[in-house]
């Protein structure tokens, strides 16, 4: 139960951060990605602010023996830079550049109940499941 509550609170904080900074509005994100004319640099301050807390915070947490409510830290260890990483990130970037939605803001925007948002989230889920079913079972 404490795991669920901790996770719920983390989700709340995360969503609130996206809302306060206006990242849940795709118009604002696209005005960051479009460097010309009326450039809106807010997104850079969001990422900067997040890293300002997360870099020292994660460093401090990882020096502990284990998490509060789990047996061990579950952190990716791979350092292999392969075609999947590059192609996947490029495909994501193209979709992000078209829509102004990355997964976090898209989940936040569900609450607006706008048909276009639900359409995007539905397609995103299909894309995620397609990758899951297509990948080799050994991986």
């Amino acid at each position: 139960m404490r795991v669920i509550i901790a996770s719920l609170i983390c989700g709340l904080l995360f969503g609130l951060g996206l809302l306060i900074s206006g990242m849940s509005n795709p118009a604002r994100v696209l005005n960051f990605l479009d460097l010309s004319a009326n450039w809106d640099a807010t997104l850079a301050f969001v990422m900067g602010g997040a890293i300002l807390v997360a870099a020292p915070g994660m460093y401090w947490v990882r020096k502990r023996n284990k998490p509060l409510f789990a047996d061990k830290f579950d952190i990716p260890t791979s350092t292999t830079i392969d075609a999947k990483l590059i192609l996947g990130s490029a495909a994501f970037g193209i979709g992000w550049g078209i829509s102004g939605f990355c997964p976090g803001p898209a989940v936040v925007a569900i609450a607006s109940l706008q048909a276009d948002v639900l359409l995007f989230v539905g397609a995103m889920i299909v894309g995620m499941l397609a990758q899951h079913w297509l990948k080799p079972k050994s991986a």
Binding site: G17, F45, G49, I51, V53
Partner: peptide, 24 residues
């Protein structure tokens, strides 16, 4: 809106640290 951006970023960073601290 740099200040709103920074404030939102601090919350997002806190969420990242708290999830690692509690669930790893």
């Amino acid at each position: 809106e740099p200040f709103a951006g920074l404030a939102g970023g601090l919350l997002i960073g806190s969420s990242v640290v708290l999830l690692l601290y509690t669930l790893g």
